[in-house]
Design a protein around this nucleic acid. Sequence first.
RNA 1: CGGGGCGUAGCGCAGCCUGGUAGCGCGCUUGCUUUGGGAGCAAGAUGUCGAGUGUUCAAAUCACUCCGCCCCGACCA
Length: 577
Amino acid sequence: MRYSEMFLPTGREVPSDAEVISHQLMIRAGMIRKLTSGIYSYLPLGYRVIRKLEQIIREEMDKAGAQEVHLSMVQPAELWQESGRWTHYGKELLRFRDRHDHEYCLGPTHEEVITALVRNEIKTYRQLPRNLYQIQTKFRDEVRPRFGVMRCREFGMKDAYSFDVDEEGAEKSYEKMFAAYNNIFRRCGLQFRSVEADSGSIGGKYSHEFMVMAESGEDAIVFCEECSYAANLEKAEVACPEKKLIFEEDFLPLQNVYTPEVRTIEEVSAFLKVKPQDIVKTLIFNADGKPYAVLIGGDQEVNEIKVKNYLGASELELASDEMIMQATGAPRGFAGPVNIKIPILIDYSVIDMINFVTGANQENYHTKNVNIGRDFKVEAFADFRVITDKDKCPRCGGSIKFARGIEVGHVFKLGTKYSKAMKAVYLDKDGQEKIMIMGCYGIGIGRTVAAGIEQNNDENGIIWPMPFAPFHVIVTPVNVNEKAVMDAAENLYNSMKALGIDVILDDRDERAGVKFKDAELIGIPLRVTIGQKNLSLGNVELKIRKTGENKLYSLEEIVRVIKQIIEQELNPDIIQP
RNA sequence: CGGGGCGUAGCGCAGCCUGGUAGCGCGCUUGCUUUGGGAGCAAGAUGUCGAGUGUUCAAAUCACUCCGCCCCGACCA
């Protein structure tokens, strides 16, 4: 490719609406342009990077035994009604009607379509297992798109779906994908971690997210320093503490105290002169319209996902003022477990507490010396809170650490959630009808590219890892008007092209500084600079973008050196599953 | 959906408070000089000032309505 012919508008100014570095650099490097909120066009340079990533993904997916398909983005409402998600998916699902007034949606994911396809075509255990994948555009009508292509509405995704005859097979399919994902992200040269995660609205029992480590990441993750445990903060388990012996003789009599306008933990703590950890928060939740009280230590946070999962609720939110009033008989800020009429869920953090303070279910009153068992009945003890840095690893008891990451991949064990609802069945050896066991596996394409930039940049721009790089090499003749220089540049360019090296020739009649700045901004890993002085001695310069290292090579050896560096960086040791 | 901010040339911004001929930097065009780290000089081109309505002799500027975009929150794979 000749730079002078390429549609590659680079920019010096940081766009005012770009917050994170990857977004700024993708715009400055001429990779993307915004069309409207959360919707982007990819320019040639950006699309080259996308295709490089897709190629790696295809190779690894194929190697793992998956087959590529291409499903429709427009999906009929009937399928979503069958799975039950037409009513449950919410506003992220963009729905519309055609001229015949039939309802459709733009696919935010493809479980319904693939299940419908497979159930019609696969009839027997002999045709299983199967793993089908596609790389395709998804549309999710995000409430608030942000960070460029990192969280946008229309985006490319690789999604794969596995179908197995039994749990054992499904487990194998999952492990294969898990290994393939490790290979993909390792080949991309990314620092990443797989973590246990919540399954969200896709459903299923169990899932892992692949997180690219980055300070700007939207997800908080927890990992153990001693064992391999790693989890999304929202999923991270908190171990049940060993129960201490509690003696009823120690229980003090209940006492209501007047606490005017004292509502929050800080206020109660200050007013009653007790530590937050001696207070128990009573939060009222609305789970699918029914109120529940959740009790938790005053210094802890409720993890709503844990509550939601425990109750099996499809919607969970903090109760409205009216619901609180109805459930507790008092306004917000004075709820407590004593004499309350709704089910009480207790977090492990409260399990050992005695004589604690709670709201009194009466405006401007709190109750002291509340005790579990004596003063109220418990529906359930469980883990309902957000893990903190004071907690230990739930698996091995080791120290835990927190980090931030960008979710670039997610693997799910779906079980029979879709195959059952949509009747994807097969006949087993005995002629018995059985439900297929499914798994699904996604990788955000654009997001992975953005994550790659988040991890690889400096004050001059992007530093592409070789596997991602839109071009491996840029040949920069310092002055295109000097014939010898330009001839040498053309020769080098042509011989590298002939060897299958992705090379771009910066044949623009620009000053050297401009070309250097652009080459660095767009992050080409290797730059060959050809100047008259060095050339007259038969030499050219090779500059490594990543290290800044700058070395002279003779015209005879330069191509071989470049070829070697590229091959080395494209094939890091891949650990096979 | 709640809170905040912004909308003026391709990009980044000033002008608005206090109404009176549309500005700056970068980029772009042409010429000359320069030529290994975002060059210098000179001459240019480019705007329904987000849209509509109103107030006024006069609106980028004031008022109202709408639209778009960004940030924080809620929500979310």
